[in-house]
Design a protein around this nucleic acid. Sequence first.
DNA 1: TAGGCCATCTGGTCCT
DNA 2: AGGACCAGATGGCCTA
Length: 357
Amino acid sequence: MLTRLFSEPSLVPEVQKFASWADECEEEDDEDESCSDTEERKGSLQEGQTEGSLSESKEEGDLAGEEEEEEEEEEGTEEAEGERPKKRGPKKRKMTKARMERSKIRRQKANARERNRMHDLNSALDNLRKVVPCYSKTQKLSKIETLRLAKNYIWALSEILRSGKRPDLVAYVQTLCKGLSQPTTNLVAGCLQLNARNFLTEQGQDAGRYHGPNSSFAMHPYTFQCSRLSSTQCQSSTMGSSHSLRTHAYCATYDSLYGNASPDYTSSEYDGPLSPPLCINANFSLKQDSSPDHEKNYHYSMHYSALPSSRPSGHNLVFGSSGMRSGVHAENILSYDMHLHHDRAPMYEELNAFFHN
DNA sequence: TAGGCCATCTGGTCCT
DNA sequence: AGGACCAGATGGCCTA
């Protein structure tokens, strides 16, 4: 009967395997014998391999046996093994139907626990994604990239605390992106409104400059101001469709650290904890837009309050799938106007407050 | 189509 | 015995 299933091409291999095996056992059950497969293997037992270990490893395949038959079969096995010395240790008990059933249930329970465990792990990873730079609901960082970015982020924050200096944005991004894949690098750089290619070029030129074990972030010659725009102030730019992304506003840390505090980080506009010291005002058009396309677009807006008067106060950047393609380089357009805290204690407090918000 | 990522199953090991 | 944890295997899905 089950061979019909076996011949069904649409069946997945696992089912086919099971069908094949079950068919054999079905026939032999009718004859009240153990699987011929098992019998064949008995005859060809390798040295050092016991019947017990065989039936253990093939627990699902061995349907033979009522409890009372166990003794006989085990004796028979000993005979089959000839003069080989008895193995020490607990006897491997033959799988009975009842034992198989228990084993099956145990396995199912273990699978369920393992699933739950992995789900817990994944939800923890999701939480981690929310607190590292570049959080996006639509384009999640992979697990490994999340961990790498988190490590870099911790390192970057530690450097900020250690040096007590306001980090250079480029160096900051370089630190964040260290060891990340190109797509993730583009993503992170995009989140920070940096031209990924630009910064990677610098990274190549300045290899080791920012990442040495004793390095601290170089001070950039110009300052950078972060400020959060209201939704009406925000102007938008559209990502390439392959890079659909929504991002949180990342001004929180910078603002809280460097005194340009945004008044309302807990706005309903943002549905998760704010993460990194990025200075991007992400405005989610999807929150107001019912169009199905909203999932594919996200909007950035930046505010350069210290830009020269010839520049607009807002700037739109267009990101492409290979990184930023706007040709607008952050180093050229961003104006830095961060106010360094000279008092370290408040800085720690603010950072602490940020993490406990 | 290859490669990356992921979920799931599974058996092994360690611990309680 | 059973649970937690781990790593390997496998197959599905997606994207370049």
